[in-house]
């Protein structure tokens, strides 16, 4: 039987999602035997042409060239898996989507004219169809393995649903917000990390992005009313690692100073 051809692609990112795959130390060599690693620039100099059965995408779309590249990759990939906060929501670098075009370029570069950068950093799904998205900054490596295994066996992957809050309850961790007054995005954040932050006596900062139908308004009322968080701090809590995820974006906009002009919304 022909082996499944796997490709891994990087866009604007920290490399952490690809590293999650390489962090499967006990399974890595077996994966390499089971599938045909056809394109994985970070790990191998063996580069095969497409089409590919599975393409894993890391990173956000942030240059004109990225748009061409992701379109071409989509065309030659049967199954396209977007992995991590950058690919799924545009990443922390999407904070520039809330500023004037070129504002940050001038802070960092003497010659912004040398750069070729889009005004906005956007998720893969804003440009091409994705077949599955795995959240998290970084994603949970066990979930990447689950998706790969499911693909190879043509079954549906078993992935966590619900909120971090539920994961936290299941683990029996005492609620940091109720018991210690620490603001926590756990009630509105998608499950998947295993409630890591509350387990370390801190509030969740939402690195897995919004859960399905999150009640962000209620959480904002709680952290500003009962915990006395300032309007600006509430805004920044939602405009964080996953600042361009729709529900977090909309909630953050509600807390903008009253006189601010219109800001862009995600597609």
């Amino acid at each position: 039987m022909k082996k499944t051809k796997l490709a891994v692609w990087k866009f604007s990112s920290c490399d952490g999602c690809q590293l999650s795959l390489l962090d499967l130390e006990d399974e890595l060599l077996e994966i390499a035997e089971t599938v045909d690693i056809s394109y994985f620039l970070e790990a191998s100099s063996r580069l095969k042409r497409g089409p590919y059965d599975i393409s894993i995408i890391e990173g956000s779309i942030s240059t004109p060239h990225d748009i061409e590249r992701i379109t071409a990759i989509r065309e030659k990939s049967k199954f396209l898996l977007a992995v991590g906060s950058c690919a799924v929501f545009g990443g922390v670098q999407a904070l520039r989507n809330y500023t004037l075009p070129g504002e940050y370029q001038q802070v960092v570069y003497e010659h912004p004219e040398y750069l070729s950068s889009l005004d906005a950093s956007s998720p893969v799904s804003a440009h091409v169809k994705t077949d599955l998205e795995l959240r998290g900054c970084p994603p949970n490596k066990r979930q990447i393995l689950e998706v790969l295994t499911a693909c190879l066996n043509a079954k549906k992957p078993d992935l966590p649903s619900g909120s971090v809050c539920l994961e936290c309850k299941r683990k029996g961790i005492v609620c940091v917000m109720v018991s210690k007054g620490i603001p926590c995005l756990g009630p509105v954040t998608h499950a998947g990390c295993g409630a890591l932050c509350p387990a370390h006596d801190r509030g969740c900062y939402g690195c897995f992005g919004p859960k399905e139908t999150p009640n962000t308004a209620s959480l904002s009322a709680w952290i500003s009313g009962k915990l006395g968080m300032s309007r600006e701090d509430v805004l920044q809590s939602f405009r964080h690692i996953n600042c361009y995820a729709l529900e977090f974006c909309l909630e953050s906009i509600k807390h903008e100073p009253k006189d601010s002009s219109e800001r862009p919304e995600p597609d």
Binding site: F11, S12, C14, D15, G16, S62, T63, D66, G91, V92, Q93, L95, R96, T99, E103, Y104, Q105, V107, V108, Y109, L115, S117, S121, C137, Y205, D233, Q236, H240, I241
Partner: peptide, 25 residues
């Protein structure tokens, strides 16, 4: 592609910086 960390850190609170800059690598 540049991500402009030194740009978007401006206006953020000090406590966000360790979590944000971790995302450089």
């Amino acid at each position: 592609a540049p991500r402009f960390f030194e740009g978007f850190l401006l206006g953020r609170r000090y406590f966000d910086a360790p979590d944000f800059t971790a995302r450089i690598c």
